[in-house]
Nucleic acid binder design. Structure first.
Length: 282
DNA sequence: AAGCCTGTCAACCGCGATCGT
DNA sequence: GACGATCGCGGTTGACAGGCT
């Protein structure tokens, strides 16, 4: 059962288009116009699926396409349109002359999401990271468990762990220092060179942003009550590529071998305070 | 220098929407 | 209204280039 295929797969080319194929397609559309994609390949002498021809034309060959980098104005327009429209790439593209939905979608996933994360904005909600999200797997730089990048995994059920760490409300300072807001730490990471130097101040939790449980109830549900071990994924380290990057889980990074490493590694698991923050990293 | 890793983006795939009969 | 054909969208994949170790 199932759908009938859109073309005879065994007689069609796949993969990258050759120059000759492009020329054939352009020439045919110049003569006959767009449309009738199903019959176009045969008529144009192309061994391609109609969908493939349509996509090639729309995303690459159309003469009115604008090439080159996105401008700052386009960036901001995309961000504001996305905040209203969500992933309606075709609608967003219709507001940016010369840009295709595919192009904008790719650009969003590779550039703008990162840009928003750096601004402390959740690209899904266009607001601050939600207090009800549970597990952001290392934010923009999360270690890919598969080839596919999903955005940071955001689940919506309330989770006390995340209520503490995700909303940007955890204050971690070097021992002996007065409290400093996480923004300045996050942007500079200055002096945060080792995890051993770090002390969590439990009373540094910003309750304005949190809907957390009372302190004594914050034992994370997935901590092994006998071993007090964090979940396995807490044993990873996360690489942060850019100096201003921070782990979306713990909101900090630290320098290690000239690389930004998330401080939320298992090496601090013995610190009961830290355990609250571990599972959200890596 | 070689192998690995990561980012980018063109292309593919599946499915819902729309159209035509 | 039912049904099949086609279109269009959004998510995903995979090839490739460049940087890093």
């Amino acid at each position: 059962m199932g759908r009938t295929p859109c073309c005879e797969k065994e007689h069609t080319n796949k993969g990258a288009w050759t120059k000759e194929e492009d020329e054939r397609l352009i020439s045919y559309i110049k003569r006959h116009g767009e449309g009738s994609w199903r019959s176009l390949p045969r008529a144009a002498g192309l061994l391609r699926c109609g969908k493939s021809c349509r996509l090639r034309w729309i995303n690459y060959l159309r003469p009115d396409l604008k090439r080159g980098n996105f401008t700052e104005e386009e960036d901001e327009l995309i961000i504001s349109l996305h905040s209203v429209l969500g992933n309606k790439w075709s609608v967003i593209a219709s507001r940016l002359p010369g840009r295709t939905d595919n192009e904008i979608k790719n650009y969003w996933n590779t550039h703008i999401k990162r840009k928003l994360y750096r601004r402390g904005i959740d690209p899904l909600t266009h607001g601050p990271p939600a207090a009800t999200t549970t597990r952001v797997i290392s934010g923009e730089n999360f270690i890919k468990s598969s080839k596919t990048e999903s955005p940071p995994v955001i689940e919506t059920e309330p989770d006390p762990w995340n209520m503490i760490s995700l909303a940007g409300d955890v204050l971690v300072n070097k021992a002996g220092n007065d409290s400093a807001d996480h923004e300045s730490n996050a942007s500079s990471n200055s002096g945060m060179t080792t995890m051993e130097e770090l002390v969590v101040q439990p009373n540094g939790i910003n309750l304005e942003l949190s809907i957390g449980l009372p302190q004594e109830d914050r034992q994370p549900p997935n901590i092994n009550s006998k071993t007090h071990s964090p979940p396995p994924y807490a044993n990873h380290k996360m690489q942060l590529k850019h100096p201003e990057d921070v782990c979306l889980c713990c909101r900090f990074g630290s320098l290690s071998n000239n690389r930004q490493m998330c401080i939320c590694s298992s090496s601090v698991a013995s610190d009961s305070l830290f355990r609250f923050y571990l599972p959200f990293c890596s």
